[in-house]
Design a protein around this nucleic acid. Sequence first.
DNA 1: TCTGGCAGTCAAGGTTACCGAGTGCCAGAC
DNA 2: GTCTGGCACTCGGTAACCTTGACTGCCAGA
Lengths: 368, 368
Amino acid sequence: MLDDRKAAILRAVVECYIRDAQPVSSAYVTQLASLGVSPATVRNEMAVLEQEGYLLQPHASAGRVPTDKGYRFFVDSLAGPAPLGEPQAELVRMFFARTHGELEHLLHETSELLSRLTDYAAVVVAPNAPEPGRVRSFQLVTLAHQLALAVAVLANGAIERRTIELPGEVTEAQVHRASAALAAFLVGGPLERSGAVPRTGDLTTDNLASATLQTLRQPDYEGAEQVFIGGAARMATAFDAVSTIRKVLGIMEQQFVLVTLLKDVLDRGLSVAIGTEHGLASLADCSVVVAPYEVDGERAGTVGVLGPTRMHYDQALTAVEVVSKKLSKALQEGGKPSAARHRGGRARDSHGGGPGAPGRSIGSQSHA
Amino acid sequence: MLDDRKAAILRAVVECYIRDAQPVSSAYVTQLASLGVSPATVRNEMAVLEQEGYLLQPHASAGRVPTDKGYRFFVDSLAGPAPLGEPQAELVRMFFARTHGELEHLLHETSELLSRLTDYAAVVVAPNAPEPGRVRSFQLVTLAHQLALAVAVLANGAIERRTIELPGEVTEAQVHRASAALAAFLVGGPLERSGAVPRTGDLTTDNLASATLQTLRQPDYEGAEQVFIGGAARMATAFDAVSTIRKVLGIMEQQFVLVTLLKDVLDRGLSVAIGTEHGLASLADCSVVVAPYEVDGERAGTVGVLGPTRMHYDQALTAVEVVSKKLSKALQEGGKPSAARHRGGRARDSHGGGPGAPGRSIGSQSHA
DNA sequence: TCTGGCAGTCAAGGTTACCGAGTGCCAGAC
DNA sequence: GTCTGGCACTCGGTAACCTTGACTGCCAGA
């Protein structure tokens, strides 16, 4: 589609613009990309590139600026992600060497890591798949007069809990029996195990048990995706127009929108969405770099970076890639309860570090 | 300290400046505060007020702007918090009428509520006191080969969990016995119950039990304060200098600093800290309005509002006051497990609403 | 097909002048 | 003594204007 020279010129323009945030002139390209031609020739080529929609001239006497299409070509023709700088690599190594507490904490910190690696805002979407783990222990505990708590410990250390309302006439003994029956039924299998609890003979007990079972099968309201945003404040550094900052922060508030955005991008099989490629008008000046991460070999969640369209795509791609890989691995490490956890309460690794360091990012956690 | 007329003039200046964000002239004050004197007189008074440090003139031909000291006088002489507007009151009522899920979720949403009420950023610091609840149920569950999970359900529905590393030679039966012994020892009392577990006769079991007890007595690493920030993006609307926005967002990233700030203000017995009154140079353009909230009659956490020094103090004060009261009450409602929870895993109220509405704020949750 | 040169265009920056908002001060009234 | 009206003064802000310089587009010639 583009001959070598045009491609080289386009690449040069994109690179310069990403670096300097200023329109790139033909002379600058000439001296940077050693093409052996004069500025005039470059000018001609640039005029063609503009006609074809790769470049744009803010005004007549200015240099050229890449369009979304220009960035797209740049990204697609990228030799591949740049290797991570040594200091960054060290950061990643350090980060994943430490053991983190529960999943939420890990993901939250991961968003900060990614943000620090790239210097853009980072987004981490938590896994929303229900815990697949088998039940290791089940208990029904009476709390108040007409209130009980169903607590299940899953094999991976996660805890599922549901509040159960008791009809008035249930006795403590009946709760106990129902608990035992449910434990016998559930332990060793999935929490949502189908079928009915074997009858105990006592009607109230059986009713309680089946009601509890029903509740357990309903997904937790936490099922909605959780989003962690790291380094939102870096957006204020990436742009200098107040209005843009406002728009972007505004979108980041609507975390539901953000999750949908990332999902869409991934679903379209992309790892980069540039400018208007994702349909959000208020993020027209932003690009998104995403990668899924896996738990037990299955796509579980998403990590991503949100930055200006003139972002360092190569670095962002690498960072996102590396972090998603490492995160997958960290979550993979099976029984290790320090990480493979979701929705359950908190766990802490017995050798986990003390109180976390002061947050460095406007981290965000919400139920989108 | 200030005679009535000076006070009236100062108040008028502050009010106008809060409303218009523009230096206030003597003429404007004259027509607004019906003092029955001419602009010239007001000018003379304003000159005195400036000399005494209540007002400031950005430049010679400009009107006056309040200093921190001026705002302080204004706040202190405030007749009292303004009543909440009807729409706001409705918002609060609606909010607290709904049942919320677990504590974290509630606090997170509270920060958004407060932000929406005031149109500034809101901060909610979670209670950091350990759950005082009595143990209702205790269990030690083997997870992996050398890994167990201690799970305690407290009377208020909270769940405490600790990971326990098992020495290699422990059998499943021994874990079981230790679990039973610990349950017998702990249930009905506090989780940190002092004393030793009664011996079972089996050395390994006893060792495991006492090791577990030891772990239980150590505070969870989540003991560090959690902070929820709602509506951080509103800061971008409150200021129009990019550099200020950057500074403020920067501080909000360092959530540890933020917590300390709120703590300091409260400890000094203040409910409002204006401009440089709190020592943070980068928040010199900001004021903070705080109030503690209570759980079981004891100070548990803090709610606060962070806005520009020219904030609507009366409204902010009311909002913070009302929200802290209502929050205390919501958390008070004793056995109700839907709210009185911390650190434990998640619980959901059986009649809790489905997936929350899309987040409207850059909410933030971190371990400071 | 490339190149050098030249004219054209336009943003940015600096200068000037002007306007107007607001003060300070003073003399006179109450 | 206190207040007021009036007047001169001060500056920030805006607009008009010009200059500069950085580009490009185009064209004629290599």
